[in-house]
Nucleic acid binder design. Structure first.
Length: 694
DNA sequence: GAGCACTGC
């Protein structure tokens, strides 16, 4: 039995069984009949101490507590306050609470500060990249992204200033969360007084409890009363969300776009007022659906008056995204067609109906080819529940699933595949190495990545000269690469730029490569292409980026200038921020900040030093621009968005691959093949490169 | 002449 049972005084928590039995859960809510409970209201009638005391008892007596509760259970905002009141922040200690997203960190911190009546940045503070709103002398409750906490471990591996660490949204299983959980488990062995709280929305508490269950080496000590229990406690708290009625489609549909359109029309014609949120997979689907629904509404006459159809995905301009949040005019129904950005990242108020296609785009990584792919794939039950929950925030809602109940019950997987098992692991491995985890293959992950992916990551790091023959971090390069908060290949490029005397330029390029895209289509595709040509450089996209950056500075960072040149102003502002951070890190690592002025050969050599593994050669006599990768002889093409499209230099290096019907190289630069052996003699020495051919 | 789910340091 994984759970612990406890009766807090006169209050009697309800005991409920897990779906698959065996695990005991506490519930602090009194009613067993209603499917939702409004905690805010309940607090007025019920003694608040029930929830509070249950939490405090568990944290006092258990090394790890797992709290399961949906939206509105108060776990995110209440628990840190309870801990502080109970003295867990006394004596200069700090309570840390992580979130996977920056926006969530900011808003939760602001809410807690407000509830406690304190100034944000004093007793309650937060840290995210580029923003540290804490005061080391005053801050007792600190909210931060999981990634920032990982970075903090590089200076303080045992996280010694924290008395309690709460990891929120653990069910999302982000890369940083999984690494953090593995490391926290290790820390706990060294720091038995440290308390962990794992907060999660779904009921998958059992495997998490199993992961954190530290079995004592000497069983005879088990009975003695030394310290907290090492078997995790599980507490389930019901949330405040309203009931959402679920509807399934009777027969499977082949065309979910058509099914979406007819479902939206039927909700609009038959159901009472309330906004509709539709989950589709990507920009293409969404734009098509917006068009179809708009057409349909116009054809059917009267209904066109009552509907505002809006797309939602991250590629939209800021102004278009803001439309989503403006209140719909009186008597109009808003229909938002969205990617899964609306599943977790953005919360829309006023949604009463959800239409769930059952699909989303997901990233998969193939360690054999070393290629990351974006594919449309079925979502998990956990995602389906999360999507449905978006309909129950303001009042009872309805969710229409475009798949059968039989499919949901019998075929849909319970949980998505953790990001750890779908990603290139080079960054994760180097972070663990920097924290002194030597045996990477034996690391205790919440869910282990494939051995192939681990081996591939070690190979890449070895070829970059970041790991030595014993798979230990090299000095100084390995440690420097680990310190730079970027992909190891980009970090290596920055370090190489020091000796080549072009660090200023390479840092600019790195910053631009780390934002989604600096181009934006404000007027049309033709204008975008023309704008690109104004900055285009014969060497390739990296040098083109430098030209854009120079122009932006010369315009005095003008948003008007960006608009005129089809450049995303918000992306450029982020570039400036990233660039400043990278310069600070470079200085700390003892790299010289130097400009190569117009010596673009130095810049291209630096790119080669980081990305030599992505070198490609144009096929001899190729008429359609076919390239082959040097490493795997994969057939690849220059992406039409590149300034080198149709230019087709003989030798190129790409920054990333996009896989559709073909493999497209994005962000391409031309090189001289002789630089490859210079940059990576060990990597290319055994391969019959035939550099002089062609 | 085609495409970018979403995060994060």
């Amino acid at each position: 039995m994984a759970g612990q049972f406890w009766k807090p005084g006169s209050a009697k928590p309800r005991l409920i069984d897990d779906e698959d039995g065996g695990v005991l859960f506490y519930s602090t809510t009194p009613s067993s009949s209603s499917s939702y409970v409004n905690l805010e209201k309940e607090r007025q009638r019920l003694p608040v101490y029930k929830y509070r005391e249950a939490i405090l008892y568990l944290v006092e007596t258990h090394s790890t507590s797992i709290i399961v509760g949906e939206t509105g259970s108060g776990k995110t905002t209440q628990i840190p306050q309870y801990l502080k009141e109970a003295g867990w922040a006394d004596g200069g200690r700090v309570i840390a609470c992580t979130q996977p997203r920056r926006l969530a960190v900011q808003s939760v911190a602001a809410r807690v500060a407000e509830e406690m009546g304190v100034t944000l940045g004093e007793e309650v503070g937060y840290t995210i990249r580029f923003e540290d709103v804490t005061n080391p002398d005053l801050t007792r409750i600190k909210f931060l992204t999981d990634g920032v906490l990982l970075r903090e471990m590089m200076d303080d591996p045992l996280l010694s200033k924290y008395s309690v660490i709460m990891v929120d949204e653990a069910h999302e299983r982000s890369l940083a969360t999984d690494i953090l959980l593995g490391l926290l488990k290790k820390i706990q062995r060294r720091r038995p007084e440290l308390r962990l709280i794992i907060a999660s929305a779904t009921i998958e508490a059992k495997s998490m409890a199993e992961f954190f269950h530290i079995r004592k080496r000497r069983p005879q000590l088990e009975g003695e009363d030394h310290g907290p229990q090492t078997e995790p406690a599980i507490l389930s708290v019901e949330g405040r969300a309203f009931n959402v009625q679920i509807f399934y489609i009777e027969e499977p549909v082949s065309d979910y776009l058509r099914a979406t359109v007819s479902t939206v029309m039927s909700i609009h014609n038959k159901e009472s007022m309330g906004d509709i949120l539709v989950f589709l997979t990507g920009q293409d689907d969404i734009d098509a659906a917006v068009q179809l629904i708009t057409d349909e509404a116009q054809n059917s006459g009267k209904s066109s008056l009552g509907m505002i159809v809006l797309p939602l995905y991250s590629g939209l301009t800021r102004a278009d995204q803001d439309l989503i949040f403006s209140p719909s005019p009186r008597g109009k129904r808003k229909v938002v067609i969205s990617t899964n950005i609306a599943e977790t990242s953005l919360t829309l108020e006023g949604i009463v109906y959800v239409v769930d296609s059952g699909f989303s785009k997901q990233r998969f990584y193939n360690p054999i080819t070393d290629i990351e792919n974006l594919v449309v794939a079925p979502i998990s039950k956990a995602s389906a529940r999360q999507r449905a929950g978006r309909a129950g925030r303001v009042r009872p809602g309805k969710c229409y699933r475009l798949y059968t109940e039989d499919y949901f019950v019998n075929e849909m997987s319970a949980h998505g595949i953790p990001e750890m098992q779908r990603s290139n692991l080079a960054s994760s491995v180097i972070q663990l190495k920097a924290l002194g985890i030597d045996n990477i293959l034996g690391f205790d992950w919440p869910s282990s990545p494939s051995p192939e992916a681990m081996v591939r990551a070690l190979e890449v790091l070895y070829s970059l000269g970041v790991l030595d023959d014993d798979a230990k971090l090299t000095s100084p390069v390995g440690f420097q690469v680990a310190e730079i908060p970027l992909d190891p290949m980009v970090s290596k490029m920055i370090i190489a730029s020091d000796q080549l005397g072009c660090s200023e330029e390479i840092i600019t390029v790195s910053a631009i490569l780390s934002v989604q895209s600096i181009w934006i289509s404000v007027k049309g595709q033709k204008e975008l292409d023309e704008a690109k040509m104004r900055f285009a450089a014969a060497e390739g996209d990296h040098v083109t980026f430098l030209n854009v950056y120079k122009g932006f500075l010369q315009s005095n960072r003008s948003s008007k200038w960006c608009h005129q040149n089809s450049i995303n102003y918000h992306a450029m502002k982020k570039v400036i921020e990233v660039r400043q951070q990278l310069r600070r890190v470079a200085q700390r690592l003892g790299l010289a900040l130097k400009s190569c002025e117009n010596d673009m050969q130095a810049l291209r050599k630096a790119v080669t030093a980081g990305f030599f593994a992505n070198a490609c050669r144009l096929e001899p006599y190729s008429h359609n621009g076919t390239y082959k990768t040097l490493r795997g002889s994969q057939e690849v093409y220059i992406h039409p968005s590149s300034v080198l499209f149709r230019v087709n230099p003989k030798w190129v290096i790409y920054n990333s691959l996009v896989s559709t019907d073909r493999q497209y190289m994005r962000n391409v630069i031309s090189i001289d093949p002789s630089w490859l052996r210079e940059a990576a003699p060990h990597f290319y020495q055994q391969q019959p490169l035939n550099l002089n051919r062609h």
